[in-house]
Structures are given as C-alpha cells and as structure tokens.
Write a protein that binds this DNA or RNA. Structure first.
Length: 426
RNA sequence: GGAGAUUUACCCAAGUGGUUGAAGGGGUCGGUCUUGAAAACCGAUAGGGGAUGCAAGUCCCGCUAGAGUUCGAAUCUCUAAAUCUCCGCCA
C-alpha cells in the first residue's frame, strides 16, 4: 500500500510514478475523500468528547441528587445528531482504502520505463553452449535418461504436470538440498510454512486482489483459503501485525515449498516440457530489514542467487527489469535467467525484489527504530534461491554429452551418491 | 464433524452496566543498602493508531476481531477467529 501522506503531499508526482508502472490514475477523488474524512473526524470526535464528559459526570450528579435524566437526554441527543456523521465517516474510510489497496507499488526512480522489451542485461556469466553434436532438448533428454515421465504425469493429473522418477527425483532433491545447505551456511533460518493460506495473507503479499484468479482457491471446500503460489506469500506473513525490535533486523529466512499456479492463459509452443507448470519447486529467500538496510539486503540476495548459479556452473545472465515488467508489489526487481540451449533463449530462474514498505504497510509489519524509539514500517525483500524446476531442464541441456548422457554438476554429487554421469536408459 | 471452556497490557491474573484514565502479582528497568552480589525496601513500567497544534499539550479510538443492545459496555446479546479439553472420523 502506498502511503497516503505521500500522495497528498505530491499527487501529480505519484501519478507520474505509477504511470511508469502502467497504472493510470487520478488522485483528485482521493484528495476530496481525504478532506471529507478530516472534516468528519473533527465533528465526530467533538461529539464523542462531549458525550464522554457528560457520561463521566453521572455518578457525581447521582450522588448530589442532580438531574440525571437531563444528562441522559442530552447524551442521547448528541448520539443521534452524530450518528449520520459516524456512518458517513465509516463509508469514506472504506472508500479511501478501496482506492489505495489495488494501487501497485511505486517503481524506483532509476528504473527504465516500459515493459519486458526494456529490461536491461547487466551481467552475463558463461557463454551460450554450441554443441558439435546433435543436441537434444530437455524433454527428449529427460525421457531418454529416465528422469521425468511426462506421459504418466498427464495421465494422473493433466497437462502441465509431470512425474520425477528415480534419478530424476534424486536430482531434483539434490538441487533443493544444495540450495538449502548454502542458505544455512549464510545464516538464513529455514522455514517450512503451511501451503494453505487465508485470503488475508494474499492481500498482505499484494497478490490479491489483482491475482486472485491465478491461484488455486479452496473456495467451496474451505472458504477464504488458497494454496500458495510462492513461499513469499507465507514468509511475508510470518511477522504480520508485529513490531520487531530494531536490533533483531535484518531477519533472514528461506523456505522450501512447491509453488502452485494456475497461470491462466495460453502456453506458447516453445514452452513445452517443464518450463511452465501448475506446480514447481522453489526455495525462496526472504529478508525483513530496516529502511537503511534495504539496499544492502537487495544486493545480498542478488549475489546469493548468482552464487548458486555459478556453483552449478550454468550459463546465465542477470537482468534489471523495466518498470512495467516488475510485479505489482515490488519497487525493484533483478531476474536471474538461465540459458536454455534448445530454445536459444534465457529463462527466469530467480527473481529478486524489494517491496520497500509496500507489503509492510499492508501487513502492519513494523520495527522499533533503536535510536529514536519510534516505530517504522519494515522493508521486505524476496528472491528465489532458486526455482529448481527451471534450473533442472536448463542444467540437463547445458551439461548433455555427445553420447546422450548427463554430467552431474560437482556440487550436487554428494546428494547423488557420488554419481558423475547419468546415462541413457536405452 | 459434534460438545464444552477460554481469550484483559511483556507474562500470570482480578474485574457486580457508571470516579476502570483496569486491581494484584511476576518479570523488566531505576534507586536505597552492600566491597560485590543476593535478599529486603522504595519508585517506574500501555501500547499502537488517528485529529489538532510551531511546540508543550488537548481530544478521539484501543480489554481477540466485527456488529448490536444501552443515556453509558472489558462487563449484556449475536457473528467470526484463535487456543484448550472431550467425543467421532481418518489416510
């Protein structure tokens, strides 16, 4: 949620910033509502103060044998007169909230305007592979290596679902174990959250109301519950409605969960296999920090994601997203994109973002500033570290051998019983 | 799924519809005493939002949440959430 004070101070400026994010809005109605609210508060509170004074005098007047009935009548009259104002005030405050809630976060000033086409590659690691043999795509490889069963996945569930089998399952789990062990080394706290969340959690994360149709809702089974689309939704709600002592920040977490997404819309033909599914595994990094710690935390998360990719030996790049390509809740996002040889393109495996205080405002997540003793909204940041199900196919393709086998990255071998190659089943 | 109980501040906890700006403990912090500590004693300890104001301050809302009854609600009624106990069901 955007700070209403910020809007009232400089409405045209905020309008321009939102426009950069593709959100056209005029704040004049909001300004009117806010003025109306102030006028109403003044009247309502005055009436209440008068009422409180009179009510408090009742025991005294009673003792002195005064005219209690007159007080009762007067208080009743005040209440009756102010009832309309109170109702109006409630309505106005609802309207203000309804105005603010759907607004996306403000993009950072240094972001380029526009959408995907204006994303800027800021680092490249490794070279796109050129194979001197006839290379296969990951769908073919996963089948011939016996790692993934797409046909049976579709049978038991439908399109967009697959089954990890045997060494495939082990490899997926090895990735997860590798990520987990790296995060533990860096002092992040391991969280396994519930996968079923209430709607409130979706609103705090900023995924609702906009993306309410993109999640698997349990409406009709359990009212107002849904299955999480990313562990971020759970992690941002960990400290909802809390005031964190300033000296405890930054709080660094990571969680493993599958991510369940409806991904409404069509699948491009290029996205066959495991590039986009209804369910994928992800380890999510998350930090709560102070206003001052925001930038350092962002850089740390980016470098952690990069480090994981480097240790796997993958070819990838880092992109700074343009204003319209970053998600609604976020102010700044860098994507880590892995090279997919069969497609000749890079695909996102991690998205590192800062929401600044946007999510914290929605969730009333605050901290007490150590020097001033005042409460402030926390800064929340998240980043995938990493989404295994994209890393998996990229890795299979990048590390395929002329004989059709797959060379397991060294860092994963401890979890693969020391195995070096996976050979075609037939 | 069914039945019951509970929800008050950092924790425990009292609280007959009206001086409740919430008793009393514990804890924490400060002090007295002590070479130091403990004990004892004394003192402090409600937070968060909002309105107004240059400020000091004043006012409004806060007893899980939301509605209601009432001149007046921590207290009565309804709804919801969470926790606990018992019963049922169960991969």
């Amino acid at each position: 949620m955007i700070d209403i004070k910020l809007i009232l101070e400089n409405p045209r400026d905020i309008e321009a910033k939102l426009a950069k994010k593709g959100c056209v809005v005029n704040f004049d109605p909001l300004i009117k509502l806010s003025e109306k609210r102030k006028a109403l508060i003044l009247r309502v509170e005055e009436a209440k103060a008068e009422r409180n004074r009179l009510s408090a005098s009742v025991p005294q007047v009673k003792k002195e044998g005064g005219d209690i009935q007159a007080i009762f009548a007067r208080v009743k009259e005040i209440s009756a007169n102010s009832a309309k104002d109170e109702e109006e005030l409630g309505k106005v405050e609802e309207e203000i909230k309804a105005f603010l809630l759907p607004l996306p976060n403000l993009p950072d000033d240094d972001l380029l305007a526009g959408g995907k086409e204006n994303n800027k590659v800021i680092h490249e690691y490794g070279k796109p592979q050129k194979f001197d043999f006839s290379a296969k795509d990951h769908v073919e490889l996963c089948e011939s290596l016996g790692l993934i069963d797409y046909v049976r996945g579709a049978k038991m569930s439908g399109h967009g679902c697959w089954v990890y089998t045997g060494l495939g399952a082990q490899l997926e789990w090895a990735l997860l174990n590798f990520f987990i062990s790296e995060h533990l080394k860096d002092g992040y706290k391991f969280i396994l959250p519930p996968h079923i969340l209430n709607y409130e959690s979706g609103y705090v994360a900023g995924q609702f109301p906009k993306f309410i149709d993109d999640v698997f809702s349990l409406e009709g089974v359990e009212p107002k519950k849904f299955i999480l689309p990313t562990a971020e939704t759970a992690l941002v709600n960990l400290h909802r409605d809390e005031i964190i002592p300033g000296n405890k920040l930054p709080l660094k977490y990571f969680a493993y969960t599958p991510c369940y997404r409806k991904e409404a819309g069509t699948y491009r033909t290029e996205e066959r296999g495991m590039i986009r599914g209804y369910q994928f595994n992800k380890v999510e990094m998350f930090q709560y920090t102070t206003e001052e710690g925001d930038q350092a935390a962002f850089e740390e998360l980016v470098s952690k994601a990069i480090s994981l990719m480097e240790k796997l030996g993958l070819t990838f790049r880092v992109s700074k997203l343009a204003a319209e390509d970053i998600s609604a809740s976020m102010a700044r996002t860098y994507d880590i994109e892995v090279y997919i040889p069969s497609m000749g393109i890079y695909k996102e495996v991690s998205s590192v973002s800062t929401a600044h205080d946007y999510q914290a405002r929605r969730g009333m997540i605050r901290y007490r500033d150590e020097t001033t003793g005042k409460t402030k909204y926390a800064r929340t940041l998240n980043g995938s570290g990493l989404a295994t199900s994209r890393v998996f196919p990229a890795m299979i393709e990048q590390f395929q051998q002329p004989d059709g086998s797959f060379k397991i990255p060294e860092v994963l071998r401890p979890w693969m019983g020391g195995l070096e190659y996976i050979k075609p089943v037939k």
